[in-house]
Computed example of a mutant assay.
Amino acid sequence: MASTPLLRSRGFAVHPASHARFDDVRAMLGPKNPTSSVCWCLSHRLPAKDNRELAGPARGAYVESLTRRSTKPGVLAYDGDDVVGWAAVAPRADLPFARSTKIPHVDDQPVWSVWCIRVRPGHRGRGISHVLLEGAVAYAARRGAPVVEGYPVDNRGEKVDLTMAYVGTRKLFEDAGFELAARTDATSAGHPRVVMRRAT
């Protein structure tokens, strides 16, 4: 499965989540029990009704179909041949965020969104979240995105519950060159969420 990565950073390589890499997507997002209805990173990709109706193995099948499209559903980080992270990135216009009443539109640019960053257990604390965010921006830029935005928590240094930390923190985005673009009415794990933006 040799291919040129989107980027190499801190000893890790980032690749688009292509169909050839679906087993690695499954390793990052899928359940141990294939019949379980885990998120599969679909809760913010699909309208709520569609997300509720898609159950069990159908969720993984849907994500597999996304990897077959020309625009991939996200990026994967690797330590050598081992997948260690995932970041979801897509045009905001294709996501429920486009109709959100809690997360505002800053302007009419065809912005892309990064909304889920996951590092595999056993690999945290190595800067992989930073590499994933850079990789997501690189992929969006390659696909023509003029601007990328995220909706992290503004936790002001307070600890964030790991189960809710997938949205990222304001500092993570600031470290990657994103700037505060708007405040929101959304919260996660008791912290307010903000719109962070970076031009590609």
Score class of each variant (00 low, 15 high):
residue 86 W to S: 02
residue 88 A to D: 14
residue 88 A to S: 15
residue 88 A to N: 05
residue 90 A to V: 07
residue 90 A to S: 12
residue 91 P to M: 07
residue 91 P to K: 09
residue 91 P to I: 04
residue 92 R to V: 04
residue 92 R to L: 06
residue 93 A to M: 08
residue 93 A to P: 00
residue 95 L to R: 15
residue 95 L to C: 04
residue 96 P to C: 07
residue 97 F to G: 01
residue 98 A to N: 10
residue 99 R to E: 12
residue 100 S to C: 05
residue 100 S to H: 01
residue 101 T to P: 13
residue 102 K to G: 08
residue 104 P to W: 01
residue 105 H to M: 08
residue 105 H to G: 10
residue 105 H to F: 04
residue 105 H to W: 10
residue 106 V to L: 12
residue 108 D to N: 07
residue 109 Q to T: 14
residue 110 P to E: 01
residue 110 P to R: 11
residue 111 V to A: 10
residue 111 V to F: 04
residue 112 W to L: 05
residue 112 W to F: 01
residue 113 S to P: 00
residue 113 S to K: 13
residue 114 V to M: 09
residue 114 V to L: 09
residue 115 W to F: 14
residue 116 C to P: 02
residue 118 R to Q: 12
residue 120 R to F: 01
residue 120 R to I: 02
residue 121 P to T: 05
residue 122 G to D: 15
residue 123 H to F: 15
residue 123 H to T: 04
residue 123 H to V: 02
residue 123 H to Y: 14
residue 124 R to Y: 13
residue 124 R to L: 14
residue 124 R to A: 11
residue 126 R to A: 15
residue 127 G to C: 08
residue 128 I to C: 07
residue 129 S to D: 13
residue 129 S to F: 07
residue 130 H to L: 06
residue 130 H to M: 03
residue 130 H to N: 05
residue 132 L to E: 02
residue 132 L to S: 05
residue 135 G to W: 04
residue 136 A to L: 05
residue 136 A to Y: 03
residue 137 V to C: 14
residue 137 V to E: 01
residue 138 A to F: 06
residue 138 A to L: 03
residue 140 A to I: 06
residue 141 A to D: 14
residue 141 A to F: 10
residue 142 R to K: 12
residue 142 R to F: 07
residue 142 R to P: 03
residue 144 G to V: 12
residue 145 A to F: 04
residue 146 P to G: 08
residue 147 V to K: 15
residue 147 V to E: 09
residue 148 V to M: 07
residue 148 V to H: 06
residue 148 V to T: 14
residue 150 G to V: 11
residue 151 Y to S: 06
residue 152 P to R: 04
residue 153 V to K: 03
residue 155 N to D: 09
residue 155 N to F: 03
residue 155 N to L: 07
residue 156 R to G: 05
residue 157 G to R: 02
residue 158 E to R: 15
residue 159 K to I: 07
residue 162 L to G: 08
residue 162 L to W: 09
residue 162 L to R: 11
residue 163 T to V: 11
residue 163 T to D: 08
residue 163 T to S: 11
residue 163 T to G: 08
residue 164 M to W: 08
residue 164 M to R: 14
residue 165 A to R: 12
residue 167 V to D: 03
residue 167 V to F: 02
residue 168 G to F: 10
residue 168 G to D: 04
residue 168 G to M: 09
residue 169 T to V: 13
residue 170 R to Q: 12
residue 171 K to V: 15
residue 172 L to G: 04
residue 172 L to W: 02
residue 172 L to N: 00
residue 172 L to P: 00
residue 173 F to D: 00
residue 174 E to K: 00
residue 174 E to C: 00
residue 175 D to C: 08
residue 176 A to D: 12
residue 176 A to V: 07
residue 176 A to H: 05
residue 177 G to P: 05
residue 179 E to L: 15
residue 179 E to I: 14
residue 179 E to H: 15
residue 180 L to W: 03
residue 182 A to R: 06
residue 184 T to V: 04
residue 186 A to D: 13
residue 186 A to V: 03
residue 186 A to H: 04
residue 187 T to E: 07
residue 187 T to H: 03
residue 187 T to S: 05
residue 189 A to E: 03
residue 189 A to Q: 08
residue 189 A to I: 10
residue 190 G to N: 08
residue 191 H to N: 01
residue 192 P to D: 01
residue 193 R to W: 03
residue 194 V to M: 09
residue 195 V to C: 03
residue 198 R to N: 00
residue 199 A to G: 03
residue 199 A to S: 10
residue 199 A to D: 11
residue 200 T to A: 13
residue 200 T to M: 06
residue 200 T to N: 11
